[in-house]
């Protein structure tokens, strides 16, 4: 029986380095993302996840290393890359005195869509994200974080990107919103879109992702399937991703003996 050939690589990163002044934030990162896969980019706070995503999306120039997104160099061709990808930042960067509908009517045409086509797509996306008609015409300034994330995701999806880069998409939102966003992303993946998301919420990554990369202090600690990550961490086959992650990022320590917090009595 013939094994299916692996999906094509859509993001290729080789020896990526980013320095701010004398501080190295990303240090020799190498990984690849394939078409139509959920890819989790995990790491503790301050490990360089957001910086890496900003470089991948053409917003930040790397200090050195090679970067290729859909066959294009984001430094040399930032506009072409931005037209083909969607980006959802950790903190939704929205104009607070626009409504969600107006936001998409601003973003869609910038990507070359007509207003009619933008409206048609907006309706589909808002339905999928469960954003009511009334909410679509309210100013974003009145929205909760969860609703802002929905609008931000809608803006990232409106032009039909081939890759979605999501920076901490599930951070600070409730379970209902998480489910709505997850369903929308699953629909996109089913249609061949790659989803690359950074997170420190391991449960989502373990459940959703086909491949995972773990980064700590700017350096890649593991890369591949869950089994590959477990192997890199040196934990048992049935161990959870949390166990492997903690071991990889150097957070493992002996279990608490119950000492400390003596003032609690």
């Amino acid at each position: 029986m013939e094994t299916p050939s692996p999906a094509p690589v859509v993001v290729r990163v080789e020896g990526l380095v980013k320095r701010f002044d004398d501080k190295t934030v990303v240090d020799g990162l190498t990984l690849d993302v394939r078409a139509g896969e959920w890819f989790a980019f995990l790491g503790p706070n301050g490990s360089g996840k957001s910086t890496t995503i900003r470089m991948m999306t053409g917003m930040l120039a790397p200090t050195s290393g090679r970067l290729e997104v859909l066959g294009l160099d984001p430094v040399a061709h930032p506009l072409e890359v931005k037209r083909r990808i969607g980006f959802m930042p950790e903190e939704p960067l929205l104009y607070e005195r626009l409504t969600p509908r107006e936001t998409l009517r601003f973003v869609g045409p910038l990507h070359g869509l007509s207003v009619e086509e933008t409206d048609r797509r907006a309706k589909e996306i808002f339905d999928l994200l469960e954003l009511s008609e009334a909410d679509q015409d309210r100013f974003i300034i009145d929205f909760s974080m969860g609703m802002r994330k929905k609008v931000s995701l809608a803006a990232a999806l409106i032009h039909g990107p081939r890759i979605l880069f999501l920076d901490e998409p599930f951070n600070g939102i409730d379970a209902v919103t998480t489910r709505a966003i997850k369903d929308a992303l699953a629909t996109a993946v089913a249609k061949g879109v790659s989803v690359f998301f950074s997170s420190h919420v391991l449960e989502q990554a373990e459940r959703l992702c086909s491949r995972i990369a773990v980064i700590s202090k700017g350096r890649l600690q593991a890369h591949g399937t869950l089994a590959d990550v477990r192997a890199a961490a040196g934990v048992a086959e049935g161990a959870s991703l949390e166990e492997a992650f903690v071991k990889l990022v150097g957070g493992d320590r002996p279990a608490s003996s119950g000492g400390g917090l003596g003032f609690l009595g």
Binding site: K82, P89, L93, Y95, L110
Partner: peptide, 15 residues
């Protein structure tokens, strides 16, 4: 001016 918060425009395909 919120418009001049350039970080809101960086991810869009704009020169």
């Amino acid at each position: 001016d919120q418009f001049l918060d350039l970080s809101r425009l960086l991810h869009l395909p704009l020169r």
